[in-house]
């Protein structure tokens, strides 16, 4: 039940966002993220967008591994 779903925001209407997760569209709550806009990527958990995603995992990994040196 804790598996998050990363998805692209297609549209936002008040407290609801339509997301596209690998082609499947679904409505999720946008109550917990301010300034959500179409085109943003979000992490969705139990039907609620819980965080904006700010880069991809490859960029993240590069940065963290470089920081180790």
């Amino acid at each position: 039940m804790c598996v998050g779903l990363s998805a692209k925001v297609v549209s936002v209407d008040d407290d609801t966002a339509v997301i596209d997760a690998g082609g499947a569209k679904r409505k999720v709550s946008a109550d917990l993220i301010e300034d959500l806009e179409p085109g943003d990527y979000v992490m969705v958990h139990a039907g609620v967008a819980i965080a904006k995603i700010t880069s991809d995992d490859a960029a993240e990994t590069d940065e963290i591994m470089e920081g180790l040196n």
Partner: peptide
Amino acid sequence: FRNCYTRVVKPEGNPAALKL
């Protein structure tokens, strides 16, 4: 301590969720 999930986890977390 190191945050290795920076693209999703911000130092402040999700303030709206915490407030709720």
